[in-house]
């Protein structure tokens, strides 16, 4: 396995510990530095507030030339998150840049929570509700917030 990917992930980890952006945390599994667990706290003043959403990030030896695959482990209700937890987020796909580290990835996902793109739906129901029935959308989001505490 590439030692470069390992070294870079260690640097990512150190940065996340020394200079953690608000509302996110993450760490590699003790026995596998390529697999990370992370938590994103729902941003305040959004329907996701108070949620503690767990994610898994799977890196491979091509990191940071290639992005990790990222998915929500916690149940999520969001226009850009598929039912299996995978995300539709440009920086994890066709706008990936090796300038992103784990902190930047998690921060982007956090801002996706309160700033969904209903035109690029991964969850059509969530996208429709977000556009047409915000009250019901908020109620459904509230459900996953409560679910995230379990």
């Amino acid at each position: 396995m590439s030692t470069e990917a390992r070294r870079r992930l260690m640097r990512d980890f150190k940065r996340l510990q020394n200079d953690p952006p608000g509302g996110i945390s993450g760490a590699p599994c003790p026995d596998n530095i390529l697999l990370w667990n992370a938590v994103i706290f729902g941003p305040a003043d959004t329907p996701f507030e108070d949620g503690t959403f767990k994610l898994a990030l799977q890196f491979d030896e091509n990191y940071p030339n290639k992005p990790p695959s990222v998915k929500f482990i916690s149940k999520m209700f969001h226009p850009n998150v598929y039912a299996n937890g995978e995300l539709c987020l440009d920086i994890l796909q066709n706008r990936w840049s090796p300038t992103y580290d784990v902190a930047a990835i998690l921060t982007s996902i956090q801002s996706l929570l309160h700033d969904p793109n209903p035109n690029s739906p991964a969850n059509a129901e969530a996208a429709n509700l977000f556009r047409e029935n915000r009250k019901e959308y908020n109620r459904r989001v509230k459900e996953v917030v409560e679910h995230s505490w379990e």
């Binding site: 598929y82 995978e86 793109n117 690029s120 739906p121 991964a122 969850n123 059509a124």
Partner: peptide
């Protein structure tokens, strides 16, 4: 502000409720 709604691709997978 995507020009249409068809441009979502993620790992070739779509969900049951899409």
């Amino acid at each position: 502000s995507p020009s249409n709604e068809t441009s979502d691709t993620t790992e070739g997978k779509t969900t049951a409720n899409a």
